[in-house]
Simulated scan of single mutants.
Amino acid sequence: MLTLTVALKAQTTQENTGENNIVIKKYQAKAPPTQFFGAEAFKPTNQTVIRWLGMGGFFINSRGTTMMFDPVLEGFDMPVMIEFPITPKEIPHLDAILISHADNDHFSLPTNKDLLPVTKAFHSTIYVDSLMTNEGFPSFGHIIGGKFRFGNIKVRLTPADHAYQNAYPGMSKRHFKNEDACGFWIDTPDGSIWAQGDSRLMNEHLQMKTPDAILFDFSDSEWHFTFEGALKIANAYPNTPLLLSHWGSVDAPDFAPFNADPEKLKAQVVNPERVFVLAPGEPYVLKRLVK
């Protein structure tokens, strides 16, 4: 598991006003106030409900089949600007946890260790599975394009380009491969969800069938889609709701991976009303697009 503080710490900038030097913190878009939820959100329903957990994480309850994607609910090693909408001890059960890659803002050992007693299975890439196996998790590793299912949900791993570690000598002794990270295509009884994970833009990302919702990796970092890449993906699926993540959570105004402004996306994207700036914990009901 990789920590991100080795890359950069948040800083402030100084503005000289003449007589006084005033320290001004750079503007950073922040998520709306948290909407807390509890065990009631895990009960069976007649629909599929998605909740952003903050950071890059989501909780999905699809007619009683429950899962989390990249949950970080505690123990992160940088200051955060949000309250997490639920604590691990409040979670009654999960059919699965899906992990996109090994960075600790997606693969949180403190969170996953505390969720271990209530989670049936963990799924990820072959590499991340090896890390989870070493921790004693009931985990399964899959190749890109690999498929699995649990409850009423079918999942397929989608490709990612996020082997940034190789670009920074000394950051890791291991040579990373693109297939060490992934996204997930999630088919539910109420529609399809593309959980993108972290990635630079790939041609494959523009050539998928149309999802009914995208758990949208929204970040200005060159090792993510970037703003221009996010626009390309959004406009490739012009009617798909975009549930923004990876923004507005970590107090790091000078650290590009955690910074992006939803208002800028709304100003340029096709059909801006489909950009959902959810509060952590706010429910979103999945609906099939009219084809």
Rank of each mutant, 00 (worst) to 15 (best):
96 A>Q: 08
221 S>D: 12
226 T>H: 03
194 W>S: 03
121 A>V: 14
35 Q>M: 14
142 H>W: 10
6 V>G: 15
115 L>I: 07
121 A>E: 07
291 K>Y: 01
89 K>H: 11
80 V>W: 01
205 H>L: 06
101 H>R: 06
268 Q>I: 10
208 M>I: 14
128 V>R: 04
65 T>F: 06
281 G>W: 05
125 T>V: 13
163 A>L: 09
59 F>H: 00
116 L>T: 03
178 N>V: 02
262 P>D: 03
165 Q>T: 13
187 D>W: 06
66 T>C: 12
163 A>F: 07
219 S>T: 15
189 P>Q: 12
71 P>Q: 04
16 N>G: 04
203 N>F: 03
276 F>I: 13
248 G>R: 06
3 T>H: 15
170 G>W: 04
170 G>H: 09
172 S>F: 09
206 L>D: 14
211 P>N: 07
184 F>I: 15
83 E>P: 02
255 F>M: 01
35 Q>V: 15
182 C>Y: 04
190 D>G: 08
198 D>F: 05
148 F>E: 10
138 P>I: 15
117 P>M: 00
207 Q>E: 15
243 L>I: 14
95 D>W: 12
267 A>I: 07
163 A>T: 08
208 M>D: 10
34 T>F: 00
273 E>K: 15
201 L>G: 10
239 N>T: 06
76 F>E: 01
45 T>N: 06
55 M>R: 02
37 F>C: 14
222 E>I: 14
166 N>H: 05
23 V>D: 11
147 K>F: 07
187 D>M: 08
279 A>C: 07
46 N>S: 11
265 L>F: 00
222 E>Y: 06
216 F>A: 00
108 S>E: 01
41 A>W: 01
38 G>V: 12
5 T>H: 10
85 P>A: 07
213 A>P: 07
21 N>M: 10
16 N>L: 11
116 L>G: 00
248 G>E: 04
101 H>G: 15
183 G>F: 02
191 G>D: 09
178 N>F: 04
113 K>A: 02
104 N>C: 13
276 F>V: 13
40 E>V: 15
209 K>S: 10
122 F>L: 08
175 H>D: 04
73 L>S: 08
273 E>H: 12
133 T>G: 06
